[in-house]
Amino acid sequence: MNIFRLIGDMSHLLAIILLLLKMWKTRSCAGISGKSQILFALVFASRYLDLFTSFVSVYNSVMKIFFISTSLLTVYLMYFKFRATYDSNHDTFRVEFLVIPVGGLAFLVNHEFSPLEILWTFSIYLESVAILPQLFMMSKTGEAETITSHYLFALGSYRALYILNWVYRYYFEGFFDLIAVVAGCVQTILYCDFFYLYITKVLKGKRITLPA
């Protein structure tokens, strides 16, 4: 554990809590892509199956259980409890165009051709693009609530901090995982446009609005 990973994990945790708080306080999931949230639930469910096969640390297990359960809770809140507020008309990204190619790639490019390993690879690839339905939705509506922007900033920062963690681990532990690093870089690049808007607008007290 190094400082980058710790802050990265905390940022990820903060993102999830922010999203749940936003939905709970406003009793609404307006502006949130249910498709991205389903993809995140799928990411966690396929990656953390190793909860049953290997124990790493209490921290590791607690975080994994937290991520799986909160992602399922988020999906439940969006599609059941607050369904009336879900903006499905704007959430029209075709997720099969992500899941099918990513599934194929996980079969072809992985560290080991075994079920758990392929599922882990699938989750890493899927996570890197899972935010696309959310970004697509924002570009369609042309705006984002400030709390949604904070959520996305925390969520995007987490993988950027993991890149610093991988640089650190490469130099000080000789550890390097090409699949995670490439996918993590792709994931972070997808957020760059949003990061720019966040820094130039939200941090100056304005909402994110995009030209039509």
Binding site: M1, R5, D9, H12, D50, S54, V56, S57, N60, M63, K64, F67, H111, E112, E117, Y162, N165, E173, F175, F176, D177, A180
Partner: peptide
């Protein structure tokens, strides 16, 4: 193997 080490990442 290296991917044992990887298991501690989230």
């Amino acid at each position: 193997k290296d991917w044992i080490k990887r298991k501690d990442e989230l």
